[in-house]
């Protein structure tokens, strides 16, 4: 670990000012990923701005009938919040499928969005990784790529985003509120994370001097029909090989709204709205679910060690939709 300086911000404005004022500065909240990466010298900020005292640590109703998750609410407090459990059970399930109780107690909702990939090569400085060191190459493409992407990868990077929470947020069409030197803006969840393209060092569209203040959930929580399936190599404390968040709105066995988000398969939580629309105004049955699953995996592309993910994704989508169509309060 390299030496760094540290300051604590008391509110959003000073936080943004501090991070702008210092060269190579980062915000730190739970630090559950940032500190690990600093210890192994994968990232080495010169200054850390502690944002754990800037408030934004509550969950509140919004005027439009949705729910605002303050950026500094912990993952654990979010998952066990009565309003989340009642109105957005998908989100609670997804959060609890990730990490460990200790990590969820420490990690914040804003930080969850900003966690880095778990690609082995990103974590090993002796190997090539364009995300860690732009221009050095991608060791995963011809290496051990069991964990890697089947959607939206590029020749520069095939890493995946590891979050479970974000898969649920993608399905729920959450909005990310951010503040920077130029004021505040709202980023729709699907635009928050990005595909690697030729700049895999950038995980998100958040600017370096911007800070997440909250994650807003729209009123529709799909509490009647939802599922989160996480396939992984052990029952706890493992990142998803393929995960699926599925939500349905059903009236008289006819689907009125459907969302399918996949985790562990791309550089961002993966959605295919065109495919999802195949379900609309159709009966909630296996044929329809198989059709949409086939449409989603049609554009998948695998590498040497992750071919299984394509069929696993297809089956998991069908399974998730079948389960979601049956869940009732």
């Amino acid at each position: 670990m390299r030496p760094f300086s540290y300051s604590r911000a008391e509110d959003i404005d000073t936080a943004v000012n501090e991070v702008t004022a210092h060269e190579d500065a980062r915000f730190i909240a739970g630090g559950t990923n940032l500190l690990d990466l600093m210890k192994i010298d994968v990232i080495h900020p010169q200054h850390l701005v502690d944002i754990t005292h800037i408030a934004h640590d509550t969950i509140e109703n919004t005027e439009d009938g949705g729910l605002r998750l303050g950026a500094l609410v912990t993952n654990a407090d979010t998952a066990y919040h009565p309003e989340v459990e009642k109105r957005y059970p998908l989100l609670a399930h997804a959060i609890l499928a990730g990490a460990s109780p200790q990590l969820r107690n420490k990690a914040t909702d804003g930080g969850n969005l900003l966690q880095r990939t778990r690609c082995y090569y990103f974590y090993d400085k002796t190997t090539a990784c364009n995300k860690r060191e732009p221009g050095s190459g991608c060791a995963a493409i011809d290496g051990y790529n069991r964990l890697h992407a089947i959607f939206g990868a590029s020749e520069h990077c095939i890493a995946t985003h590891p979050s479970d929470m974000c898969v649920a947020l993608a399905a729920l069409d959450a909005r990310v509120q951010v503040t920077g030197p130029d004021g505040s803006r709202t980023i729709p969840f699907e635009d928050f994370h990005r595909l690697p393209g030729d700049t895999p060092e950038k995980d998100t569209n958040l600017r370096e001097d911007e800070i997440i203040t909250s994650v807003d959930l729209p009123p529709k929580g799909f509490a009647d029909h939802y599922t989160y399936i996480k396939n992984r190599d052990r029952a706890s404390y493992a990142f998803a090989l393929v995960s699926v968040a599925a939500t349905l709105e059903i009236e008289d066995n006819v689907i009125k709204d459907a969302r399918i988000a996949l985790g562990g398969v791309a550089h961002k939580p993966w959605r295919n709205k065109e495919a999802e629309s195949l379900l609309i105004d159709k009966p909630a049955d296996r044929d329809g679910f198989q059709a949409v699953a086939a449409a989603i995996v049609k554009e998948a592309k695998s590498f040497r060690y992750n071919e299984f993910k394509i069929e696993l994704a297809r089956r998991s989508i069908v399974r998730a939709l079948m389960e979601a169509s049956q869940t009732y309060q």
């Binding site: 082995y120 090569y121 002796t126 060791a139 051990y144």
Partner: peptide
């Protein structure tokens, strides 16, 4: 990882 001759999930 045989390219590097290194255990990679360390």
């Amino acid at each position: 990882d045989h390219h590097y001759g290194r255990f990679i999930n360390h």
